[in-house]
Amino acid sequence: METTQLTEKKLDVTVLEPRMKHPTIFEWFDALKGGESFVIHNDHDPKPLYYQLLGERGNIFKWEYLDQGPEIWEVRISKLTPEEGETVGELVAKDYRKAQVFKKFGIDFCCGGKKSVKQVCKEKGISEDQLEQELLALDATEKARETEYDKWEPGFLADYIVNMHHKYVREAIPALYEYTTKIARVHGQRHPELLEVVKHFTNVANELESHMPKEERVLFPYIKQLDEARKSGVKMEPAAFGSIQNPINMMEMEHDHAGRELEMIRELTNDYTLPADACATYTVAFKKLQEFEDDLFRHIHLENNILFPKALEMEKEVVK
Rank of each mutant, 00 (worst) to 15 (best):
Y282W: 09
I183S: 06
E128L: 05
Q245W: 08
D45C: 04
Q130C: 13
R260V: 11
T24G: 09
I72N: 09
L268A: 04
D256S: 15
Q5I: 03
A278Y: 09
F156P: 00
D139K: 07
S232W: 04
H22M: 15
W63R: 00
D95P: 05
E134H: 05
I126N: 03
L302I: 01
T4Y: 07
P174C: 04
K143A: 15
R266S: 10
Q225A: 15
V198I: 02
H191W: 12
K114G: 13
Y65L: 01
L296C: 06
E196H: 05
E2Q: 04
K21Q: 10
K143Y: 11
M212T: 14
F38V: 02
R97V: 03
E36N: 08
T3N: 13
E2R: 11
T269I: 10
S116V: 08
P48C: 13
F156D: 04
F241N: 01
P154M: 06
F201S: 09
E142S: 15
E237W: 08
E207G: 12
L312A: 15
I265C: 12
H22L: 15
E291Y: 11
H255W: 13
S116Y: 10
C110E: 05
V13M: 06
V319T: 12
H257Q: 14
E146C: 15
K235P: 07
I72S: 02
D227G: 03
S78M: 15
M264I: 14
D271H: 06
P192K: 07
